[in-house]
Amino acid sequence: MAGKEDLKLLGLQVSPFVIRVCMALNMKGVSYDYVEEDLFNKSELLLKLNPVHKKVPVLIHNGKPICESLVILQYVDELFDGRSILPTDPYVRATARFWAAYIEDKLCPAWMGIVKAKAEEERAEKVKETLAAIEHVEVAFAQCSNGNAFFGGDSIGYLDIVLGSFLFWFEAVRRMYGLEIINTSKTPLLAAWAEQFGGSVEAKKVVPEADKAVQYANKLHAAATLATELVSSQ
């Protein structure tokens, strides 16, 4: 098993994708060095190790980079001993991967679109997409949990990490725009799950407060406004 000197994680405190990796490494009991990146001024190391997307997270193992959070989760699960993160049963594992891809491809860009939208019409459209997607995830929870507290059964697993990493941003969206993405009326199962996940030891170790996400969103808006002003003044 790799020691602390073998692992380094390039990340960002408010990135849900980085939080996924931190949670997985902690669940495996693995030590690693963490390097905070400034995505407004990306390091040469980040640009060198992830030249395709130029994004975090990047896990560096023995000098070799692994990029993209879902890929890293599987890598960590296969590499290190300890409790399994992905389901061990082939069918359940395939189902979990399907829903993880759905969350990544549909839910993620929708709620991020709410934060990034510059016009109210655009934001309203992203709200519709987000609420439609989360209702599908409510159905997924009913299918995958088998009546247990988490997607992964009675303890946190792969899908819990994938979706749970967004929860503090969902709270940020509520504070900024008054939108409850997960609520007890339309998604009661996910509402109960979110409370369990948020109170777990695994989440408390790495998930930041929603205020951090609000602050970062405001920083993004300020940067976007400045960029627009610079373009219009040319």
Rank of each mutant, 00 (worst) to 15 (best):
S155M: 09
A117I: 10
I114G: 03
A140D: 00
Y75E: 01
D105E: 15
K126I: 00
S69A: 11
R97H: 13
V139C: 01
A132W: 02
L79D: 05
V92H: 12
L159A: 09
G164T: 11
A117C: 10
P188V: 06
K186Y: 02
L70M: 14
L59W: 07
V58K: 01
V56D: 03
N146P: 02
D154I: 08
F150V: 07
M176P: 05
K116R: 15
I156E: 04
W111A: 04
A94I: 09
G178M: 12
G147K: 10
A140G: 05
I103K: 02
P57A: 05
K64E: 13
D160S: 14
L86C: 12
P188W: 09
V115E: 10
K55V: 01
A101Y: 05
C144L: 15
R174S: 14
L73D: 04
M176H: 06
E195A: 15
D160K: 08
Y177N: 13
C144I: 08
P109H: 11
S145H: 03
I60N: 01
P65M: 11
K116V: 07
L73K: 04
E125R: 13
E121F: 11
V92N: 13
E68N: 02
P188D: 11
A140C: 11
L70Y: 04
P188N: 07
L70R: 06
F98A: 02
N62T: 00
A124L: 13
K106W: 08
L79T: 15
F151C: 06
V137L: 10
S145L: 10
F170P: 00
E122L: 07
A192V: 01
V56H: 02
S155Y: 12
A101N: 13
N148S: 15
G153Q: 12
I114K: 07
L163V: 11
M176W: 04
S145E: 05
L190P: 00
K116M: 13
D81M: 13
W111N: 08
L79H: 06
A172M: 05
V58P: 00
G113L: 05
P109F: 07
G153R: 09
L86T: 08
Y102T: 06
P90V: 01
T184M: 12
A192C: 10
E180R: 06
Y158A: 09
V137A: 03
G63C: 08
P87N: 11
P65N: 10
F98T: 06
N148C: 14
R93C: 14
V58F: 04
I85Q: 11
S165K: 09
D89E: 15
T88I: 10
I66R: 01
